[in-house]
Computed example of a mutant assay.
Amino acid sequence: METLLIITAAALWGCGAGVLIPRPAYRLSVPTDAPWRSACPAGHPLTGIGNGWLGRARCAAGDSYGPSTLAIASVTAVVCALLAAAVGARPELVVWLLLAPAGVLLALVDFTAHRLPDVLTLPLAAVVLVLLGVAALLPDAGGSWTSALLGSLILGAGYFVLFVISKGFGFGDVKLALVLGAVLGWYGWAIVLIGTFAGYLLGALCGISLILVGRADRKARIPFGPFLLAGTFATVLLGSCAH
């Protein structure tokens, strides 16, 4: 009964948070160095809570904009419910539930505009380490803060090397790696390796599929962020079950 209540609460949280994602996704999905969008497609200024960042993705005329609210809310609810089912009542569940909507937002922006904004990635890296540090002090924590910190630093350094020697990575991926390394590192080094490989594998399969159907060539760049996030999510489910 307790597990069912946790899963239900997590799904409701994900749904509510997901409703608020399309507006910042729309505002942030702009080319590099371009200012964030401040008006809806019809030209109405975006106003409201948090200088217009929070609220439904509807303009003054009542028209929706950005990605589908129903689809995003559904995806976020499912992600949060699966995390709750796998992690249970452990302290780190709160951390994962707070990060899940941000991960969905990052995946949307990267998929749409091929960028991972510093305004999201850098604060998330700090927040996840602080929150995991608090979670590690609570009873029944299922991971290690030390390995989370080392995972963040090592994965970030590894992605930086790849950024320098490879044209397939952007610097946004390096900063995202700081977040993902902490999340994966919480469950140990085996999970870091599996999660990193899973993200690469998903990205490679997508690239190969696009080439085979003629929608991309070998020089085309695909947004790796969504695949890195998906690989981390799947591996966190695995790691939480193993612990």
Rank of each mutant, 00 (worst) to 15 (best):
residue 26 Y to L: 08
residue 47 T to Q: 14
residue 206 C to V: 14
residue 114 H to T: 07
residue 220 A to E: 13
residue 202 L to K: 01
residue 197 F to H: 01
residue 76 T to Y: 10
residue 106 L to S: 06
residue 225 G to A: 14
residue 6 I to V: 15
residue 52 G to L: 09
residue 44 H to T: 11
residue 137 L to F: 04
residue 164 V to E: 09
residue 201 L to Y: 00
residue 203 G to Q: 02
residue 144 S to P: 00
residue 43 G to F: 10
residue 185 G to S: 09
residue 35 P to T: 05
residue 36 W to I: 05
residue 213 V to R: 15
residue 27 R to Q: 15
residue 229 L to C: 08
residue 40 C to T: 15
residue 153 L to C: 05
residue 158 G to R: 04
residue 50 G to Y: 08
residue 207 G to M: 13
residue 171 F to H: 04
residue 166 S to D: 14
residue 111 F to A: 14
residue 2 E to G: 07
residue 188 G to F: 10
residue 18 G to C: 06
residue 225 G to N: 08
residue 175 K to P: 11
residue 86 A to H: 02
residue 142 G to W: 04
residue 44 H to S: 13
residue 84 A to D: 03
residue 221 R to D: 12
residue 237 L to T: 08
residue 151 G to H: 00
residue 172 G to L: 11
residue 70 L to P: 01
residue 195 G to N: 03
residue 110 D to E: 09
residue 204 A to L: 14
residue 199 G to D: 00
residue 231 G to E: 01
residue 179 V to M: 06
residue 184 L to N: 07
residue 22 P to T: 11
residue 11 A to P: 02
residue 3 T to G: 14
residue 176 L to G: 10
residue 228 L to K: 03
residue 102 A to G: 13
residue 72 I to A: 02
residue 146 T to R: 11
residue 235 T to Q: 07
residue 238 L to T: 08
residue 8 T to V: 15
residue 104 V to H: 01
residue 129 L to E: 00
residue 237 L to A: 08
residue 148 A to L: 04
residue 189 W to V: 14
residue 95 V to P: 02
